[in-house]
Design a protein around this nucleic acid. Structure first.
Lengths: 266, 266
DNA sequence: CTTGACTCTCCCCTAAAGGGAGGCTGTAGA
DNA sequence: TCTACAGCCTCCCTTTAGGGGAGAGTCAAG
């Protein structure tokens, strides 16, 4: 039986950390002295403590570690979990590297004067029959829902998907209605509904390039609205004239998106 | 001039985040309405906001971003900072990958039954003249101090470095005295001191392998002390019989370290 | 009896927002 | 004229994984 200080040296975990893991029920001392309430650890807990240390060093959170222990307590399994962590690190690296690449392209374009030409025009959208589903979550997740809708629509789908955005601000959990145009009334079920997008007057522009830079297009629209004294209303629309496919992302620099925001008619 | 909601859509930053950046003086609205205290942003701030978003997406902290802005406000410079972040991500990946490799080796050895044989013996250390320096910080940083000492000792150094540990527990900021044996009295300066490590009785063992697993050796020592009723005293010593060199790390599986903890003589 | 080492609990602090309450104004609709 | 609603404000609480430190109890030695 080891007192906390000894156990700290043996395991390479700080005393503070050990107390915290106790509080979090991640590593419970095998005995607690009734009188002194000293924590007492024994040999069997050393392995457990080392596993925790290894996983923490690899960047796992305590919640993740708890989850791992719930599913497997074997030392041999750790390398598999670590492998997953490695993959996510590599993914992160790729993401950052992509941001850098886009940034380089963009600054080149700014220098070349290609950028920031958004032509805003006023238009009235036609009525459009769509099947749709609404979710609250991340912008990037809409692909999943679009996929579901296309699967449901089968051969009745026509044209490209449209998203309706129900927030007047950018949110981590946004309220998004994903729509796929259909040629005729079809049966719907569960969280899929069928509706007519109404005829509506508003302002529109075209954004060419990755979605990360779509803010520029919104800026153009808001500038235009401000200058004309237009009052904008929800939901705004994005029509993905050209975007990622079901299986491949393609070249984001060539994505084409139409943005449309309805204007309040007085 | 944009109100916060509009600005949020244009920049892709949430309203909450914008308010927070204001509070942290990272992105201050160019005007605040006296009466309503509405935040108002203008076009020039869009670039600033986008820079913040890019850096946050790359994993920089707000402190780091402030630091970057203090040294450079040019959009063209961002890719260089991102490059540094990429390097640190790659470094992290290597670290995790190394942990995994060690773990695989170790589990193999456990299966082979090679591991966990620590022979503990009682011994009395000889007096030893050393130059030394004490610091409070991380275990891994001791290489820097050892390097300084060797540089100072020049040709007078002999044998391998010794660390004295002045904590009875594992700490993030440990109190460590780094020693390099010398053949004769030499001049010392600043934070380097010269002293004789005293003759002292205690228990010792040899650890072969990476430092991450040295806890096992401490366990053997503490077990031995507990079984003999020995009371251990500070500082404990690690003698790096074989370890990383000045320029290369070598093979950690072959590092040889002697551990020694003095025993209180009654 | 005191001292020093070791332990305990309890409280405050960090970074980067997110969630929500409660309150303000301006406008539109009844 | 009253009310509802949108959009904004401030203020407070919550999250992670402990670190720092205060104040107090315990144990053994001198």
């Amino acid at each position: 039986m080891y007192k906390i200080g000894q156990f700290s040296i043996i395991t390479g975990l700080t005393v503070k950390a050990l107390r915290y893991y106790h509080k979090e029920s991640l590593l419970i001392p095998c005995d607690i002295d009734e009188k002194t309430s000293y924590r007492l650890y024994d040999t069997s807990q050393i392995v457990q403590a080392r596993k925790i240390k290894i996983l923490r060093d690899c960047g796992f959170s305590l919640k993740e570690i708890k989850d791992i222990f719930n599913h497997s307590s074997d030392l041999d399994d750790l390398p598999f979990y670590i492998e997953e962590k490695l993959n996510s690190l590599i993914k992160e690296t790729k993401k950052v590297s992509l941001i850098k690449k886009n940034l380089l392209n963009e600054t080149k374009e700014i220098r070349g004067g290609i950028m920031s030409k958004y032509e805003v025009n006023e238009k009235t959208t036609e009525e459009q029959l769509v099947i749709s589903t609404k979710y609250i979550g991340k912008y990037e997740d809409c692909g999943i829902y679009i996929g579901k809708l296309y699967k449901h629509a089968k051969q009745h789908s026509c044209k490209v998907p449209i998203n309706l955005y129900w927030d007047a601000e950018h949110k981590t959990d946004a309220s998004i209605e994903v729509c796929v145009p259909v040629k005729k009334e079809i049966n719907v079920k569960e969280d899929i509904k069928i509706q007519k997008l109404p005829k509506s007057f508003g302002i529109a522009t075209i954004h060419i390039g990755p979605y990360g830079e779509i803010g520029n297009a919104y800026q153009a629209l808001h500038d235009y609205a401000n200058s004309k004294g237009f009052e904008l209303v929800l939901p705004s629309r994005e029509t993905y004239l050209k975007g990622p496919g079901m299986f491949f992302m393609g070249n984001p620099n060539k994505y084409i998106t139409e943005l449309f925001i309805p204007v309040k008619v007085k």
